[in-house]
């Protein structure tokens, strides 16, 4: 006679992130282009921009590439979550497990962050070198603020990605929906140029997007587009507020159920 499983003895928490770390790592190991693409893509756009724009904008464009890389995690999270749900029917398994939806969200976001880390490290090194070469080395506190901003964008765009993924119905929709959402958000925000370059109406629209405050805060802290301390604090507050609102809306849209 079969013995019932004594689930009380099984660990029910504390294993999600390491498990998703392995998933992220295995995914890179099996598909090297998955690791190479996030590294090369920002550089392809960076090279293009460096050819068509003034040389003094290079540090701003490198920071923009870092922020854009983190924003793009949303597209990857969307793709993974939707594929697992639609193609592999894995969401049923996750919903039935003791893991809650927040752990699932952070797990997928974490597994995708693994693939983005090499790109961020290379871009960070390049930023440090370019600023040092220009006689304005990046201060320690600016690195900390940059990390904080990247963390906020990681959480926000992963939430948006997973929220959209739960609404996607077929595999065919994943790429166009992700492309439209995250490319347009990236284009509307002044990631690769100062906000003053944009027409006034566009500047107004850009102020409704969290990435704009992320870009303005980092550009200000690095001294690329100088701003007063009060203004920087305002940007930080607005980034935090818009991130909180964005995550709340995303989690409300997110469907955590089988099928």
């Amino acid at each position: 006679m079969a013995q019932p499983v004594r689930s009380a003895n099984l660990p029910t928490e504390g294993r999600s992130l390491p498990a998703f770390l392995i998933i992220g790592w295995r995914w890179i190991g099996r598909n090297p282009a998955v690791a190479i693409a996030p590294i090369l893509l920002p550089f392809i756009f960076l090279y293009f921009l460096s050819l068509i724009s003034p040389a003094e904008l290079l540090p701003l464009e490198i920071v923009g590439a870092m922020l854009f890389t983190l924003q793009n995690i949303g597209s990857w999270v969307l793709g993974d979550s939707a594929s697992w749900r639609i193609e592999a029917s894995l969401q049923d398994l996750f919903v039935a497990s003791p893991m809650g939806r927040l752990r699932y969200l952070f797990g997928i976001a974490f597994s995708n962050l693994i693939a983005m880390i090499p790109a961020l490290v290379i871009l960070g090194t390049l930023l440090g070198y370019v600023e040092w070469d220009r006689g304005t080395p990046v201060p320690f506190y600016a690195w900390l603020i940059l990390l904080g901003v990247l963390f906020a964008l990681w959480v926000l765009f992963s939430s948006i990605g997973i929220a959209i993924s739960s609404r996607v119905k077929t595999q065919r929709e994943i790429w166009p929906v992700g492309n439209l959402t995250f490319a347009v958000l990236g284009m509307l925000s002044p990631l690769y140029y100062p906000i003053s370059y944009l027409p006034p109406a566009w500047q107004l629209v850009a102020h409704g997007i969290p990435t704009t405050y992320a870009a303005l805060l980092v550009q200000g802290v690095l001294g690329i587009t100088p701003a007063a301390t009060d203004t920087l604090l305002l940007y930080a507050g607005l980034l935090g507020l818009s991130t909180a609102i964005g995550v709340t809306i995303a989690l409300r849209l997110y469907r955590w159920r089988p099928g």
């Binding site: 282009a33 893509l41 756009f45």
Partner: peptide
């Protein structure tokens, strides 16, 4: 299908944008 995006975006952006 999941692996296509990374390879195709590299190919098309490399030869079309770079």
């Amino acid at each position: 299908n999941r692996a296509i995006w990374a390879y195709s975006s590299l190919f098309f952006n490399l030869f079309g944008v770079l």
